[in-house]
Design a protein around this nucleic acid. Sequence first.
DNA 1: ACATCCCTTACGGAAATCCGTAAGGGATTG
DNA 2: CAATCCCTTACGGATTTCCGTAAGGGATGT
Lengths: 221, 221
Amino acid sequence: MFKKILVAEDIESINQGVHSILERLQVQHISHAQYCDDALLRIKRAIYDKNPFELLICDLSFKKDHRNVTLSSGQELIALLKKEQPNLKIIVFTIEDHPQIASTLINDCEVEGYVLKNRKGLAELEEAIKKVAQNKSYISPQLATTLKRNNLVVLPEYEIQLLTHLANGLTQDQIELHFKKQGITPNSRSAIEKRLKDLRDDFNAQTTVHLVTIVKDLQLI
Amino acid sequence: MFKKILVAEDIESINQGVHSILERLQVQHISHAQYCDDALLRIKRAIYDKNPFELLICDLSFKKDHRNVTLSSGQELIALLKKEQPNLKIIVFTIEDHPQIASTLINDCEVEGYVLKNRKGLAELEEAIKKVAQNKSYISPQLATTLKRNNLVVLPEYEIQLLTHLANGLTQDQIELHFKKQGITPNSRSAIEKRLKDLRDDFNAQTTVHLVTIVKDLQLI
DNA sequence: ACATCCCTTACGGAAATCCGTAAGGGATTG
DNA sequence: CAATCCCTTACGGATTTCCGTAAGGGATGT
């Protein structure tokens, strides 16, 4: 079992719940951070002290308050940490069940666990901690099944840019111009139209407005 | 102070936190419901038993699981309850800080309290319970300030329909036709165009796609 | 080399949207 | 009653988007 764990989570009542589990698992050093910035500092400090954390249990969304923070989300924190301390195990503990977001963290950021805060969340978290301590990984069952069958759509960077510009109010002419300035290809009017047509087909969108709302709902842009 | 309180909340660790507060406030009867349907049943039953609840502390979002539920959100529950037991006090305790949603609950559904689950959430909840027990109302400070200055936009039903149809892939021609069938006026092509132009101006949208993404982000549709 | 495939670009016409103007019809007000 | 205001509708032209066709170029395979 882990000896030194950091919990990054801003809601106190959930912190209490997590803490009680860690105590039951007889974790010796339990630290808490209510801000992402704090979490990063503590982890850096622990490395400097030659006594690094072994596991981070991390929420994704942190409420803003009066404090100025540079890291506002768990995603940013995790992305940094994988450079700072690659051997640090990470379990995401969040209410966020959107497959797109979970998939990015699991596959790209390579977190070791992803646990949903639901009715049985704490029990699952305990399970996850045990698994990860054995060098296995853990993903909440509901999420695991949807991730498997849900053949996730990942939009290529080009399509993301195209749709984002549309959503932000650029006309196709403006996008063509912009792509030419930035050296992004293809940038002809024709190609842009064709991509949009293909995307409409792919997503069964009747109009371009429809298309943009669909990809926004799917959080692809 | 209240003697009989129901807590509708699906995440166990938060339930624990709320429970500990209610105990400190020496509430005699504390009930919990992990599903909206359960909450409704318990409240009805309590009325039938001539021993109704005095206060409901209610989350908004409830995770779906294997159980079939008819009420899937706190909003639906609250809307029903205000008919079922008009004198029941309600405090919303949620992570949802979108002013649009909060405003609807506070002004339309007339809940007595709206507390955000943030770093000081439990302390605020305690404060709210005390206030509401004195027939006052309570709104989380952060929210209260934004609600005041944020001169909330409320879109008339007609505009909501128009934009929703656009977002769902109808062309302006199809919308004109649809409005005529439904007897919704104005339904001329011209009027539809004019409304969209006005809306684009109101929201500083460059294009119609832009407009739709803006109102979707604001959760106006 | 040649054929094939895939992608980009170009072009032209159809369709949809955008925009301004103007006419008509209620409601309000002097 | 007349004047005014506001909204709806109609219409025409400009702009934008949509769609099909075709030409050109690079990569791959035979």
